[in-house]
Write a protein that binds this DNA or RNA. Structure first.
Lengths: 213, 213, 213, 213
DNA sequence: AATGAATGAGGGTTCATTCAT
DNA sequence: GATGAATGAACCCTCATTCAT
């Protein structure tokens, strides 16, 4: 007996709210924030237009909710790794993998987010409030800070050479993103595994020929 | 004799076409592609709405023309460096600098471009045609290929360790972009110089602690 | 034993129907007919949306019921005065006072009613049916007819000079309304008393300077 | 030769702006502010939706412009009468006539205006800004002040007995309005003439039977 | 070549009403 | 009887594009 659908109505068991979020995920990912229309979302969610506004105050807040709910698990996983009692270099490797997994899965939506988040359009009405945008940014920097933390640990333990951890973390982050956005990573585990090692290798040891290698 | 305005009208000597492009640069940079309105562009260009459509078939083509004309000099400079008869590692440094200079100067517009270029909106009417987007992408990869070329040269001369040059070039490119977009680089020459060396250093030698350093 | 709530639920003893009417009174008065929303009414009535539609067929009929129930006592009072066995001029004074009291108490709601009642929106769907509007109008003229009756009595007894009683009654009525809607009357008894005499004075004797006064 | 339509195009010679205002007059009068839709206005004006927004910033401002342009002549006429060098009682009569003419002609639209102007809906978004509403109110009181001025002149010349001129002017005004809104006045000149004298008579001398009359 | 009035498809949002529980 | 999630028609407004002058 299915406890969420006692009478087995058509409803697909996710509830309207989730259906809308799922549809919004798809549409925002495919169209970007501006070109995504509520009409298209409801068509996909198989629901009425009013229903959207029962659950979300407006298009923007629907988008924000989507981002928040999508990243929750990722942020938690990342924090767990940072807290792990392991060698920093191993943790760097694991973090890279978690990043890759998340961004490969959510590449399109996050590209949209990253664009809307930028300073562009500060003036005028704009789709995103300034305060709203700050909320998005915090989410972002928060994940990068996890990287910083791990790198700092490595420096403290003298396995990573002293450098500006903020810049280094951002650099690492940007490479990860680029690999994803340029399509250098596939959806499958082996691909992620391989690219993950690739990144770690170059990030840690550089591309220069040295007598060490 | 005025060489840009044969009949010496009030016109400020740039010609309507250029006035529009200049205004478009500003507005697209500030507002992004979608929020930029033709009305705002003509207000800034001090011209009529119809005039825009005399020179450009539509908003999208105006945007493309803008991108093309803006990047012309940059692409040429880059090609020149690649063709230089110098040490690969020096050429890498010079290329990084040219990249930084260009992207610092045009950060806002390029952020917009990079967003609109993404796979998003493949279906439907969309603002950017699929073919159109390919044209943008080619421009992009073309500049990255210059990096690849230099790196390959380094590998051939055994000053860079063998690796996937395509990925490496993209990695380097992404770090440069990130530095710009995250505001880690200032507008002044010293800043660019410094960040430029930073990037080269980490890119070439990695962050790991080795007995070499 | 609670005589209005046999089973003693939390219900505040007025019954859902009355709660809704009370809330509707407040909301319609504050917002007008169109801007008043059912959502706001149920929030104030502390009831469910469906409940409203159990008691009233639609928003419009809720409004009508409200008007009807509110004016019942007023109409009765007025009829009582008209039937009184007193001097016509005294009755005019009393009627003016009753009018003032009622309209001061219900100024906002009646302003709304008077607007919605107007000829406006004859065609099309409209909020108020033509027949519906007739019902409202009858309520209105009915109260004015009480004034006519008193005036006619005055004419018959030769204390009021012969004139078109219908117009005169409407004139008197309009002055009363104006005093209320223009905020010339306060909520307190003295104010009503004073304005009441004011109106009676001018209505009966005019503003012209005569040797009588 | 018609100097406003040199080439005799279809355009009916009023220009789009005027066509829209004319249509708006009709639709607002018939439907009231809220039920009037821009779609209906453009259908009547035989124009495109965007055109409305080329001339007026929004529905509200269209309405305001309408009111302003309609009342301009009326306000001027009234001021002229007040400034006339005649007997106050004659001026009262003339003013009443001008009021009647104007309100008979514009009864419907002004009913709408008067409703939207009221305090109702102070809170919330509402259709009319508070400041906007003040502008409307000023227009109104301005016309009533003309009446006050004439009445005061009468008092000074001792042909009108001392009383609160503000209240008296409002009283007179309200009676005029009522006559119009109740349909006691026809469109034709005789009717206006007759009602005009009626009002003046009762307003000046009251309804009470005295030995003077 | 330059212009700008006119256009209308399309988008986000509101809200009265229904109906299954 | 009481409820509130679901609905969709309707509304105001934006803005890229056209075309007659």
């Amino acid at each position: 007996m299915n406890n969420s659908q006692e009478h087995g109505q058509v409803d697909d068991g996710r509830g309207k709210r989730q259906q809308i979020l799922d549809a919004a995920y798809t549409v925002f990912s495919r169209k970007g924030y501006h070109r995504a229309t509520v009409d298209e979302i409801i068509a996909l969610a198989d629901t009425g237009k009013g229903t959207v506004y029962n659950y979300f105050v407006n298009k923007e807040q629907l988008f924000y909710t989507l981002i928040k709910e999508c990243s929750a698990k990722f942020e938690a996983d990342l924090a767990a790794i940072a807290a792990l009692d392991e060698l920093p270099l191993d943790k760097v490797g694991k973090a890279i993998k978690v990043f890759l997994e998340f961004y490969v899965a959510n590449a399109d939506l996050w590209r949209v987010l990253m664009y809307e988040m930028r300073g562009v359009g500060t003036e005028g009405k704009s789709a995103f409030t300034l305060v709203q945008r700050e909320k998005y940014k915090e989410r972002f920097t928060h994940t990068i800070e996890m990287l910083e933390k791990i790198l700092q640990e490595g420096i403290d333990q003298k396995v990573i050479r002293p450098c500006d951890v903020t810049k280094a973390a951002h650099g690492l982050f940007s490479v990860i993103l680029m690999m994803v956005f340029q399509g250098f990573v596939g959806q499958n585990d082996e691909s992620i595994e391989k690219v993950s090692r690739n990144i770690a290798d170059i990030f840690l040891y550089g591309v220069a020929q040295t007598n060490n290698n």
